[in-house]
Design a protein around this nucleic acid. Structure first.
Lengths: 349, 349
DNA sequence: TTGAAAGCGGTACCAC
DNA sequence: GTGGTACCGCTTTCAA
């Protein structure tokens, strides 16, 4: 537990002043410090295993190279962690560190968490949520460069840039995949009303039908929820005791867990997937969609890309000067990606 | 984006010196500063919305009240986030902040992550993993108070305290639950060999049989893996085309995802759960075990408790002085908790 | 009871 | 080319 070497230690060992050490180690040695002094300094630094104290740097420079990430429950919940992963990729590659705080969905903690982060001199702030949702922007976020990932400001005049997935196109392309297999009666288990993602995916579902000239029935769309049991019971309602002619030939789900429930129901009813019924997931949840039997065809949420895009925007405004901030567009939409596996196939006739 | 108030601003406004401000706001005013000055200072601080700059504090005090948490993939993966949640609970309640870094399973990044954390003057370090596993302790962790959560040092003379779940008892109690329902032929899908948790749970399974005087057969134990497909195929091997007399009446799984696969297989085979087959999970994964149909009986991993216990130990050594460090026990085992739901029931006869 | 000053570890400006 | 010094914001000791 011995103390770390300081710049002064290096200076002494190299027989020079602290300022010389600072100059050399920051690449401003040439033209200011004699070559041989430079060598001695670098040598001494290496020997002492010197690295500058980040705290002192922050205090001096008023910049910490730390980005604060505030999440509603990304750390604690099983979902969307890759947004932070992607954000961290970019941050590290540009010499920043991310400091993550999770409020576990207690928005009352937002303000104080932001305050803590601000007290630590973070250079920028990112708010990340599990699932697309509108948020109330905590006061403090407007005081330094900030960005929203997977969430957005509902106010008429949004003040922060946000990065979100393109759910409408996602819903549309998922539906189109099913239409291309010849399905003409596609049910949709659409999540729950309190999520803004649900209606967007429904919108995409409608668009796909309209574009393809295939009529669709509103009663085929269910606001079911997001979990296995919801998928199970939704599918039972659609399939159990219904004659093959009246059954949907495909069920599209607003996430992979619903799809698991649907598959379970199909199995109980003796229906084979995808021969008798095609099942489409959404999210491409790791170790669920890819390990289901059969593996789920699904619409992958671009989590890493969202994180990367959000962090890139943020660091650009931090490093690029404040000049054109106002002129920037306030929204980035990242496309979802269709992942075709084995749970979808040609429509039975 | 206007600058924050400093202690000097407060001092000016209250018409006193900076030192007075410092004394009063740190509760050392009485006996040093006049009562009315104290009031004016507190008043001014409130008006300016003053809070001390954490960076300056760290530099000055050589303590940051930040705990660095290094995880292999807790943030990014869907698992075990609640360890961090529990750790954060305790940290916050004791006036600390946690700084989380996730290496995404790249142990080559461990050392530099620790270095970064150390440069930021963290007062303590916690290493957290997804799933119980042995780790190589990164050098830097020995330089300041540190603790391991859900992982441990394999070396003969462990240098760091670790907190882990009691997997043997967990495996035993899960098995006992099944034995109590009258099951006498219990198969075990035991995860994979590369996880130290798997053999421990098998051990518990054996212990339960031995204690109950029920013979068991080694060929009923399969190192299957951890995912849905593994559970599915494992169950198929055990059940498909096997006469009821030769079938296990219960399948115990090393996690809930395996249990989902087993349930899926049972459904395909027309077996009713729990009437024809009892299924036992492990982990009590949120929104999987509780939302399965039927809901899974499972052995809950004490994730929050692990995080809380680890953070408590760590903060105790940081705040409690170094005195008795050496005398402390180096291991804390946290019991798992049986959660009875609907996937288990009396053995058929 | 109060204020001045040193110092935490750096950086950067300015004499020399 | 080099070293001295002020300053970032705060705490703490010491003298007035």
């Amino acid at each position: 537990m011995n103390r770390k070497a300081t710049a002064l230690d290096v200076a002494k060992r190299a027989g020079v002043s602290r300022s010389a050490v600072s100059l050399v180690l920051n690449g401003r040695g040439d033209g200011n410090v004699a070559k041989e002094s430079q060598d001695r300094i670098r040598q001494a630094a290496k020997e002492l295993n010197y690295s500058p104290n980040a705290i002192a740097l922050s205090l001096r420079n008023q910049r910490s190279r730390v980005i604060g990430i505030l999440s509603d429950e990304v750390v604690v919940s099983p979902f969307d962690g890759n947004i932070i992963g992607g954000a961290d990729d970019i941050a590290r590659s540009r010499g920043f560190v991310t400091l993550v705080m999770d409020t576990e969905r207690d928005t009352a903690r937002d303000a104080s968490a932001i305050e803590t982060l601000l007290d630590r001199q973070v250079d920028g702030l990112m708010y990340v949520t599990v699932g697309l949702k509108p948020i109330e922007i905590p006061q403090g976020m407007l005081r330094i460069p900030s960005v929203l990932a997977n969430c957005y400001d509902e106010h008429p005049q949004p003040q922060l840039h946000h990065v979100i997935p393109d759910e409408i196109t996602g819903g549309r392309e998922a539906t189109e995949h099913l239409l291309q297999w010849g399905h003409r009666d596609i049910a949709l288990l659409a999540g729950s009303v309190d999520s803004p993602a649900a209606p967007l995916r429904v919108q995409g579902y409608r668009d796909a039908h309209a574009l393809a000239g295939v009529p669709f029935r509103d009663e085929r769309v269910f606001m079911a929820g997001w979990d296995i049991d919801a998928g199970y019971h939704g599918a039972m309602k659609l399939l159990d005791g219904v004659s093959p002619a009246d059954r949907p030939t495909a069920i599209m789900c607003a996430n992979d867990r619903l799809a698991v429930g649907v598959a379970l129901a199909a199995a109980r009813l003796g229906l084979s997937v995808p021969r008798d019924l095609s099942i489409m997931g959404y999210d491409d949840e790791a170790r669920i969609a890819d390990t289901m039997v059969p593996a789920l065809t699904t619409m992958a949420l671009p989590l890493r890309e969202i994180g990367r895009a959000a962090m890139t925007t943020l660091l650009d405004t931090i490093e690029g000067g404040e000049g054109t901030t106002a002129a920037r567009t306030m929204e980035t939409m990242v496309p979802c990606r269709l992942v075709v596996r084995e749970s979808t196939g040609p429509a039975p006739h």
